[in-house]
Every structure is written in structure tokens, then in C-alpha cells.
Design a protein around this nucleic acid. Structure first.
Lengths: 118, 118
DNA sequence: ATTTGACTTGGAGTGCGCTCTAAGGTCCAA
DNA sequence: TTGGACCTTAGAGCGCACTCCAAGTCAAAT
């Protein structure tokens, strides 16, 4: 799979795919005979998970750490699980906060609809 | 109220308060006889609302637009309401997306707990 | 009187996450 | 076999939202 196809399927730009590889988020994407990247299905699955970590607000540095642990093998599974558990709590807290803020927005909007100054 | 007190109460830094004033997010904070900022209760309320817009992901530029409309008076109320409604939908969508992603995290964590490689 | 410390301003610097450029190599269709 | 659209790399640049700095002012404490 070419970088353009991988970009298409992952929703990331080709630039970003190269960047992610450079900083160690994706290890060793295969190269074809002319040195061009050749993405495997497995790479796409990993990218999909990385994208979920990103969109849920995990910093790139943490993702790099997670990727590094993953490369180190199964004996790092506990640390990886702990990272995910910690992140899960942050995401959960973020959802709770956004839900609270949404109420404030609704209240504000309602005031505008009633013609009151807000 | 001094800038430090306002910082304390708003949760923003004094630097950020000056920055927000400079870019037009906060208009005309009062000055005391020696030229120091003197925040009013009203300023704090506005800051609190601004902070909600920020933490829910509204870009500074949009907040500036909202602040500008607010300064222009009541005839801009409709446009302000529309901005909030649009923002509300984005926040709502973000909550939905995060909730989905949370499920994926939970699934991943569960796999780790079962001792499977993920 | 002088030191300390918080304030003022305009402007420069920072960290993050990309995003793009330059210079060159490769592929493919006409 | 030539043109154009890809690809490669290292490295520079960008947009956002702050964050800090320098130089100066001012009030209170010593």
C-alpha cells in the first residue's frame, strides 16, 4: 500500500505519516524495491489506534512512550495497561467536564432565545 | 481587584489575563490611580464564561468575534446566539466521539487485563 | 532615602503538532 | 525518451495559545 493510500485510509496526511514514522510512533514501515514506503494492513490497524489516542487528547510524547513499550515486547504489558487506564480516566473526566459545560451553553442559548441579554 | 486576585479567581495566569485584554477578549478593564488593572466582579463573570468557551474548544479567534459582537450591543444578539448554537453542536459531537473512543479504550484495557497482547 | 516587589507596556520566545520546502530519485503514459 | 506526477530525505517554517522578557513606574516597608 502506497503512502497516499495509507493516508487516505488513515485520515492522516502523507506528511504526517512520515512525521509519525520519524519520531518513532510507527516502526519500520516496509520499503519496496525503489525505497518507497509500502504499508501493511497491520500498520493501518496500529495507525487507527494511534489516531484514537490522539483524538482523545493523548500527547505525542506519551504515544511515543507507548509505542516504545510495545516494541519492547510483552514484559511491558503492565505498564502499557496502566498508561491506558490513566488515559481512560482523563478521557472520562473530560467527557464529564464537557457535559457540564454543555449545560452552561444550553442555559446561555436559552437566555438568548428568550430575548434576554446574556 | 488586582490582576493577581483576578488570576487566582479565574484560574488564568496574570500573563494570560493581559494577553486576553490585548487581543480584545476583555474590553476596558478599569485602571486605578497608579495605572494598575482593577478587575470588577463583572469582568470575572465574563472571564468565567470565556473560560468555558475555551475549555470546550472554541478557537480564540471565534471568542474574539463573540466578544466584539457583544461590545456592539443588543442588535448582534442573534448572531451571538447562532455562534453558541453552532458551538454547542460541536461540543455535543465531541462528547459523542469521546464516548465512542472511550469504549475502544475500555476494550483495549480489558484485553490487557485478560493477559492478551493488544 | 533606598530597597523590595508588584505592576505597566511592547515585543520576543516557547512548545506542540504538524506542514511544507528543497533537492534529488522513481514510475508510467504518451 | 521525455514529461509530469509521484516518491525519498533532512531540515525549515507555521499556527495556535500562551508565556516570558526588558525596561520602566509606583507604593509600601526598612
Amino acid at each position: 500500500m502506497t503512502i497516499q493510500e495509507a493516508a487516505q485510509r488513515s485520515g492522516l496526511s502523507a506528511h504526517t505519516l512520515r512525521y509519525y514514522e520519524r519520531i518513532g510512533l510507527i516502526r519500520s514501515v516496509g520499503r519496496n524495491s525503489s525505497g518507497h514506503r509500502d504499508y501493511a494492513e497491520e500498520d493501518l490497524q496500529w495507525l487507527e489506534f494511534l489516531t484514537k489516542l490522539r483524538t482523545t487528547g493523548m500527547p505525542i510524547a506519551d504515544m511515543c512512550r507507548y509505542a516504545e513499550l510495545r516494541r519492547m515486547g510483552q514484559h511491558t504489558a503492565d505498564e502499557r495497561r496502566e498508561m491506558l487506564e490513566l488515559h481512560r480516566e482523563r478521557v472520562s473526566a473530560r467527557i464529564a467536564q464537557l457535559s457540564q459545560d454543555l449545560k452552561v451553553l444550553d442555559y446561555k442559548i436559552d437566555n438568548y432565545r428568550r430575548g434576554q441579554l446574556a
